[in-house]
C-alpha cells in the first residue's frame, strides 16, 4: 500500500506552550475553496437557524419595543413602555399565577404518577402478560393529541357526562357539577386533564431508568438489611435523580407553553380563571390585535423559559462531564 500525499497537506506545528498538552495544532494552508468548505458545510444549518429562530425571535423582540405593529402602518419606537404596561396589569399577573399553579401541579403530579406506574411496571411480582397490557393502557393518554384530549374530557366532564353520572348516582355528589365552567373547579380540572395526558412520558422515561439500575445494588442493600422503602430511598431515587431532574425541567418548559388544551377546554374562562400566559398572548394578538403587547408577553415567557433552559443545559453538561 502506498501512502499518497494530498494535494495540499496540512502543516502541523507543535505548540509546546499549549496548556492542554503537547498536541499538534493543525493549520490548513489550502486554497480559498478549501478554507470555505467548513463554512459551506455548516451554512445550511446556520441559515435555517437564522431564518426560523434567530430572525423571528429578533422580530418579536423588535415588535415589543414599538407602539403597535401589524395593524399600524408606521409604528414608533417606545422602548420598554409595553414591558412597564404589561407588568402593571392585573390580568398579566393573574395569568402568570395561573400558569405557575398549572405548571407546578402538573409537573409534580407527572413525576409522582409516572414514578409510581414505572415502579409497578418494573415490579417482578407482575406477570409478563398483565404487565404488557398495563403498559399499553397506561401509555394511551400520551398518544392522543391535545385537541382529542380536550374533546374527550369535555364530554366526560359535561354535567350530563359519565363522571357526573357516576358521582351523582353513587351519592358522592348531590347534583352534577359543570367542572370546567365553575370558577372554583376550572383551574384544578384543566390541571388534572393535563396531568392525565402528560404522565406517560415520565412513566416511560423512568421505566427505562429503572431497568438500567443494576440488581447488584439491591442485593447489596438487602444484605445490609435495607427494607423496601430504604432500598427505594437509597438506591432507586439516587439512580433516577438525573432523569427526574432533566424530565422535570423539560416538563416545566412544555407545560408553561401549553395552549391547545386550555384553549379547547375553557378558552381561559370562566371569568379568566384559567387564563394562562399562552392564551393571554394569543388573545392580545388575535382578539385585540395588540401585536406589540402580545410580543411583549411572548418575550417575557421566553425569558422565563430561557432561565429554565439554561439551568437544564448546565445540569445536563455536569451529568455528561
Amino acid at each position: 500500500m502506498t501512502l499518497l500525499q494530498s494535494e495540499n497537506p496540512p502543516i502541523r506545528e507543535l505548540t509546546s506552550t499549549d496548556s492542554r498538552g503537547p498536541w499538534p495544532r493543525v493549520r490548513y494552508r489550502g486554497s480559498l475553496r478549501q478554507k470555505a468548505e467548513p463554512y459551506l458545510l455548516v451554512a445550511p444549518t446556520v441559515l435555517l437557524i437564522l431564518g426560523l429562530m434567530v430572525i423571528p425571535i429578533g422580530i418579536v423582540i423588535g415588535y415589543s419595543l414599538m407602539d403597535n405593529v401589524v395593524t399600524n402602518r408606521s409604528p414608533q419606537f417606545v422602548g420598554l413602555a409595553h414591558y412597564i404596561e404589561i407588568l402593571g396589569q392585573l390580568t398579566f399577573w393573574s395569568a402568570a399565577l395561573n400558569t405557575l399553579i398549572f405548571t407546578l401541579g402538573s409537573v409534580v403530579a407527572h413525576m409522582v404518577i409516572g414514578l409510581l406506574f414505572a415502579l409497578m411496571l418494573n415490579s417482578k411480582t407482575m406477570a409478563r402478560v398483565p404487565r404488557a397490557i398495563f403498559r399499553a393502557i397506561y401509555i394511551l393518554p400520551w398518544i392522543f393529541t391535545a385537541a382529542v384530549v380536550a374533546v374527550v374530557w369535555r364530554l366526560l366532564l359535561d354535567p350530563s357526562g359519565v363522571i357526573n353520572y357516576v358521582l351523582t348516582t353513587t351519592g358522592v355528589l348531590a347534583e352534577a357539577i359543570p367542572w370546567l365552567a365553575t370558577p372554583a373547579t376550572a383551574l384544578v380540572t384543566v390541571t388534572v386533564i393535563n396531568i392525565w395526558s402528560g404522565y406517560p412520558f415520565f412513566m416511560i422515561s423512568l421505566l427505562a431508568g429503572l431497568q438500567g439500575i443494576s440488581t447488584d445494588l439491591y442485593e447489596a442493600a438487602k444484605i445490609d438489611g435495607a427494607g423496601v422503602f430504604r432500598q427505594f430511598s437509597s438506591v432507586t431515587l439516587p439512580a433516577l435523580r438525573p432523569i427526574l431532574y432533566s424530565m422535570a425541567l423539560l416538563d416545566v418548559l412544555w407545560t408553561t407553553q401549553q395552549f391547545t388544551l386550555i384553549w379547547a377546554t375553557t378558552g381561559g374562562g370562566p371569568q379568566g380563571l384559567t387564563e394562562m400566559l399562552s392564551t393571554l398572548t394569543y388573545k392580545l394578538a388575535f382578539n385585540t390585535y395588540q401585536f406589540s403587547m402580545a410580543s411583549t408577553s411572548a418575550v417575557l415567557v421566553l425569558v422565563a423559559s430561557l432561565t429554565v433552559a439554561v439551568v437544564y443545559v448546565r445540569r445536563h453538561r455536569k451529568e455528561v462531564v
Binding site: Q34, E37, L40, A43, L47
Partner: peptide, 19 residues
C-alpha cells in the same frame, strides 16, 4: 471533498430557496 462541497452548495441553495 468536491462531492462534499457540491452537497453543501446544494443544501445552501435549497435552504435559501426554502427561506
Amino acid at each position: 471533498r468536491r462531492r462534499a462541497a457540491r452537497i453543501s452548495a446544494a443544501m445552501l441553495v435549497s435552504a435559501t430557496t426554502f427561506l
